[in-house]
């Protein structure tokens, strides 16, 4: 379904995506995992044909660089945050995209119903909550029933309830057989939604693996957010990575994927190297309420990736 070969995207001298290749079969779900600046968003934009890149990307055999319009007709794209004219009404916005995708405008109503936004057609985009905006973006992405869904950190701006709604919808789509590529900073989302993970670092593919390999004790994984002095964040992320922790340098603090019973370890690890953790919070995971609480054997990330 998706075939990427030696994809390279340079911005002046910086290689945002560096010689990256992967395959994804129809119905598969691939997570892009890595810190800010790892190249996840750039790779997504290359897949969409928005950024021209070296190498080849084929969707169902269609070369994105040569037939971008046709390739994009197969993709439903959900950005980090829906960017659409704030004055537009939800109903007219979705009808516009229905026409753009050459589908009957009645499908717009169906698409809104699918994400639970029926009855909100007269609301203006600016009046929607973050969760509703993301669900609208999903509705727009699904309007033409595309076989591929591409999502760029779709829950990063949502609270736990909004995140749960979006993840539930994505789970349903997976069950329907949609092919999915998504970037995420949250291990719980990757575990729930992905069957493959591309671990990226500074534009390069570190490993193409599975959530089970990255997080063997998947049932008790928690997302821990550490707040460190701003100038030290990058250094702290490096130290944690060297220590075998799965860490993302997101917009707010460092997010560390850690087993339920080892939550203090990253902080101790940083303290031993002179990095002070100002504050921390335990992020509420998508399926937290359903998970069994039991200790499991874990391995450092460095060993997992070896």
């Amino acid at each position: 379904m998706i075939e990427a070969r030696h994809v390279t995207k340079k911005f002046k001298r910086v290689r945002a995506v560096d010689d990256l290749s992967f395959d994804l079969q129809a119905g598969g779900s691939l997570a892009l995992w890595g810190s800010n600046g790892a190249g996840k968003t750039t790779l997504i934009r290359c897949l969409l044909g928005v950024f021209p890149a070296k190498g080849t990307i084929r969707l169902n055999g269609i070369d994105v660089s040569k037939k971008g319009k046709h390739a994009r007709a197969m993709i439903g794209y959900v950005p980090q945050e829906l960017a659409f004219h704030d004055d537009a009404k939800l109903g007219s916005a979705i009808r516009f995209f229905a026409k753009l995708r050459r589908v009957d405008v009645r499908q717009a109503a169906q698409s809104l119903a699918l994400v639970g936004l029926s009855g909100h057609e007269s609301k203006r985009v600016r009046d929607l909550s973050g969760g509703m905006k993301q669900r609208l973006a999903l509705a727009i992405a699904l309007i033409a029933d595309p076989p591929i869904i591409v999502l760029d950190e779709p829950t990063s701006n949502l609270d736990s309830s909004g995140r749960g709604e979006v993840v539930d919808t994505l789970l349903r789509l997976r069950k329907q057989g949609k092919t999915m590529i998504f970037a995420s900073h949250r291990p719980d989302e990757v575990i729930t939604l992905a069957d493959q993970v591309l671990v990226m670092e500074q534009g390069r593919l570190v490993q193409q693996t599975t959530p089970e390999v990255l997080w063997p004790s998947r049932s008790s994984i928690r997302s821990l957010r550490l707040f460190i002095e701003q100038g030290d964040e990058h250094h702290a992320a490096e130290i944690l990575r060297e220590g075998g922790f799965a860490v993302n340098h997101a917009n707010i603090g460092l997010t560390v994927a850690i087993e339920q019973h080892r939550k203090a370890e990253p902080m101790n690890h940083l303290a031993a190297r002179g990095i002070i953790v100002r504050d921390f919070e335990l992020l509420r995971d998508v399926q937290q309420d359903d998970e069994p609480e039991h200790p499991v054997r874990t391995e450092p990330m460095s060993e997992v990736l070896r």
Partner: peptide, 14 residues
């Protein structure tokens, strides 16, 4: 500037 250009370019539109 509004970020809407990316969203439009991500649609089946040249």
């Amino acid at each position: 500037e509004r970020g809407t250009l990316l969203y439009l370019l991500a649609q089946p539109l040249s």
